[in-house]
Simulated scan of single mutants.
Amino acid sequence: MASKVVTMARLLVPKVPLLVSTTLVHYAYGPAKPSWSYRFSVTMALMRAFVAHLNEVPVSQSQIMSKMTDEKAPVNEGAIATEAVVLKEYREKAADIMERLLNLQGIDSIKLGWDWKNDPAAAEPLMGEWTETRIKGDNYKDGRTILYLHGGGYFLASIRTHRWATWHMSRQAGAKVFSLEYRLAPDSPFPAAVQDALSAYLYLLNPPADSGIAPIDPQNIVIMGDSAGGGEFLSSTVFSQLL
């Protein structure tokens, strides 16, 4: 615990001048955009500084710092977050689908540089999280669902870092949001994250009988993501054409 506090202090103390300058600029000259609150201005300044810092430290250290910030990320007030597990059988089916398309393109594990079908990390549970608003309206009755893939350069972030986004999506779209804790590089490079995304889609189409959710019509599923998650969306959509 003490080491985490020290690491966090080393990360934040150098940012004090940035916080002071951001505060002065925000109140003296106004925010960068009219819609930006003071809190949002500070958040954006810290995010930009963090991204710039990533170029100066090893990936492993960046991941440690990222995990420290998301361990206690709260569920937004007015939201319900429910944990879910995508069983191994969905990963196996996704792997079979992906291998068919990769073979058609003449791409094998040798060309990809690693044995992606036997990734040790795939033995770990594939975790997901359902997000919905506490006030359930009629909008939920049509089964509309968003499969959300978080951004983070394929090596950072998690379900928790993007809870603010999934809650707003649920509220604005009148939909339940299923976000995914997909595998990250460099331990599990491409196409591991895409396999996990496709696994989650298969899970939504035909969930286990004891999952507590009914199969979802593909016409009611929207797959979306930001940054790296957007790339996963495009890739998983291509592979899903073989379903």
Rank of each mutant, 00 (worst) to 15 (best):
L156H: 01
D70P: 00
I146Y: 00
H150R: 14
G230T: 08
A122G: 05
M65I: 03
H150M: 03
E77D: 13
L101G: 05
T131K: 05
A185T: 00
D196W: 03
P120Q: 04
Y203F: 15
L24K: 13
L242P: 04
P58W: 02
I80S: 03
T166P: 08
Q219G: 15
R100P: 03
S62P: 05
V85D: 07
K117L: 15
D96R: 14
S3K: 02
V6M: 08
D142R: 13
D138A: 13
Q105P: 00
S66C: 10
G212P: 12
T161A: 06
V13M: 08
R91E: 07
L147E: 03
S35D: 12
L234H: 11
D108A: 09
M44Y: 00
A94P: 10
K93G: 03
M224C: 15
K33E: 05
L18E: 04
F190Q: 03
R91F: 04
S60Q: 02
V222W: 08
E181K: 15
M44Q: 11
L104A: 12
S179V: 06
R144S: 14
A73T: 15
Q63V: 07
Y182I: 10
D138I: 05
L180T: 11
E89T: 14
S60F: 01
Y203V: 15
A175I: 04
D138Y: 06
S37R: 11
M68L: 15
Y90K: 08
L198V: 09
E181W: 11
V5M: 07
M68I: 10
F190L: 12
A28C: 12
S235P: 05
M47V: 04
L184I: 01
L147Q: 06
P14Y: 01
S179Q: 09
G174E: 04
